[in-house]
Write a protein that binds this DNA or RNA. Structure first.
Lengths: 243, 243
DNA sequence: CAGTGGTCTAGACCACATC
DNA sequence: ATGTGGTCTAGACCACTGG
């Protein structure tokens, strides 16, 4: 297979794209096994080694999960136990690895502000859902989240379904709406609590809070969630590894 | 090469360890090329493919840098241009990719507090250097850093050398003391500015600040730097990618 | 036991940088 | 032209899982 230098694209990259496309098209459901390397090799008419490179690069980006002796599986937010901390950077200061309880405090329809529209790549005024919740550790509020979602992708979103879902938010999005979050960017600021956030977080007005702005992306780098979190950092902190 | 299951360790892992050892021993200086894959293969008596796997895993962790057609180089903090942002997560809100100017505001010898000793894996009371500096964007202070270093590893540290070095702090540590930072953990809190930080950062007392605590590690996961940064987030923010 | 992913090898060829 | 890392192949064998 010869290609010109300007157009050069390794075979395994092309195979990767094809697998990615199949994932996006839902050919295999989250949590399911994809075909074995040998099957994929015959399907794409390349060697097993080339498939392996493609699959491993997808696994490196957490789109797939490989398990020796078992197979390769479509990554899912519904069974990531420890790895669920991937999108939850708030930890307790005492080091206890504990998941906060989520309490819904509001869900409303709204129209995208200019800024929200820009970040979500929709048009200003397009319908969105705005969801608010509080995360609590042992009954003590720690995070106040305001989550903005393009309504077009989350048809049928209701307060009841939201409150009823037992797992994580991204598990909810994945199972109920087929929206899979793959990666996110965050920007952090320090701000003072205003009256409302102070009330919901049960801290004095003016308390320094961590403001975490997140844009989360699905396949094709398409933004599908805008989130603003306000975190008290008395008992918790935001954790990050520089590698 | 047969091994028992309990002891199993892939060949490329062993090769990786040997290369890592050589790096730690300074067999090749930062910025220098290491031997080619073929040479390493013959040195370790394995195939080129096995060497490649070892080298690529080191490159993936930023200990080495591979350049097609040129060779594989020991990573250095002295010439990482864009990639220098790896350890500088503070960005301007307006998106301009600009490096802050560093201004030294103090260097003193001290004894490690119990907490510093724990984080740096030294004994309480062991000698340390405490270095303070301000980072400024266009003359406006943005970050106040307090950096604690085990004195044993930074012999000959002086205010003058510190102020004289033109590049980044980790470039300074690497060139002047042979201490190479490989990765770091950070914990973020939001706090209110006290009198002194308010003065140095030119903000009102009580202004919410981002408090960034960092422990940086060198080879063998040995901690060698403890850093506490206080950042105003009016014009800047802390940036992070969740992948 | 069969089937999966993981390792290791040997060899061919390609893209890139330099001389 | 030469040497570097990057890709691709084919095949052998190993480690892990589950029936």
């Amino acid at each position: 297979m010869k290609t010109l230098s300007a157009t050069f694209r390794p075979l395994y990259r092309q195979v990767r794209s094809m697998i990615e496309r199949a994932l996006e098209d839902g050919e295999w459901a989250p949590g399911e096994a994809i075909p074995s390397e040998i099957e994929l090799a015959s399907r794409f008419d390349v060697s097993q080694g080339t498939v392996r490179k493609a699959v491993q690069s997808l696994a490196a980006e957490n789109l797939l999960v490989r398990r020796q002796g078992k197979g390769t599986f479509v990554a899912t937010h519904t069974e990531e136990k420890a790895s669920n901390f991937r999108f939850l950077r708030i930890r307790r200061n005492d080091g206890r690895a504990e998941y906060p309880k989520s309490r819904l405090v509001g869900l409303r329809r709204a129209r995208a502000s200019a800024e929200a529209a820009r970040l979500l790549a929709v048009r200003t005024g397009d319908p969105v859902f705005v969801l608010r919740r509080v995360l609590e550790y042992g009954g003590v509020p720690a995070v106040l989240d305001e989550i903005t979602l393009p309504a077009a992708l989350f048809r049928g979103m209701t307060r009841e379904r939201c409150a009823a879902y037992p797992g994580s938010m991204y598990g909810f999005f994945e199972t109920e709406f087929g929206v899979r979050m793959l990666r996110a960017d965050e920007r952090l600021h320090a701000i003072a609590a205003d009256a409302e956030s102070a009330r919901l977080l049960q801290v004095p007005v003016g308390t320094p809070l961590l403001a975490v702005e997140r844009v989360a992306y699905t396949y094709g780098e398409r933004p599908v969630e805008l989130r603003r979190g306000l975190c008290t950092t008395r008992r918790e902190h935001y954790w990050n590894a520089l590698t």
